[in-house]
Amino acid sequence: MKITLKVWRQKDQNDEGRFVEYTADHVSPDMSFLEMLDVVNIGLVKKGETPVAFDHDCREGICGSCGMMINGRAHGPGRGIATCQLHMRSFRDGDTIVIEPWRSNAFPVLKDLMVDRTSFDRIMQAGGYTSAKTGGVPDGNAILIPKPVADEAFDAAACIGCGACVAACPNSSAMLFVSAKVSQLALLPQGQAERTARVQRMIAQMDEEKFGSCSNTYACEAECPKQISVTHIARLNREFVASQF
């Protein structure tokens, strides 16, 4: 297959940035999208140009490093996958693919397609944990958690922190990300003690990072590689209201 790429190139945080066109020849449908970019990059290096920078690591959809806007969709076409799981068989010979970094003021572009998502870590720091000190805890089976509760907590805990929810949201809202953690710990008995403070602090931090607010378009749910449901956002809202009383 032959693919034309329109890639966002930006030297560093201060650079304006622009689209640059590249052609990828000899693309195999079995290639992953990132492998296709690897091949383009090898070509660029050989020509003495700087390769396209993008975050990636595990390439099996779990580390959450990769993420780019591909033809206007976070992580590209398809549901329930991260960029690294996208394969070229999802495209056709002769296609033009536009690749942009996640866009959000809370995710400043570092270079090309790499963005800074440390705002997520700062939100987690504001309470995305239970204060269980090493060693001072009861036996695992001393805390009984019925399977449906454990399962629902797991659904929320599956978040990989990739930022696709923010990227896809018309408001750059981080509600799905925040709700996943709040919901997980609100469901589990272990999270009860800090329930009130957690939701308040995490939302305050989310606002401080200048993420937008949720307008319930559910674009986040549609693009989440782990298909985390917006019912967790409902739970987050409920937790937040309840925390006021």
Partner: peptide, 17 residues
Amino acid sequence: DQCVAQGVPFARDYAGY
């Protein structure tokens, strides 16, 4: 025990074990 206390959602049976 440590991981359970942190809220790691290990697989459970219907009785919660």
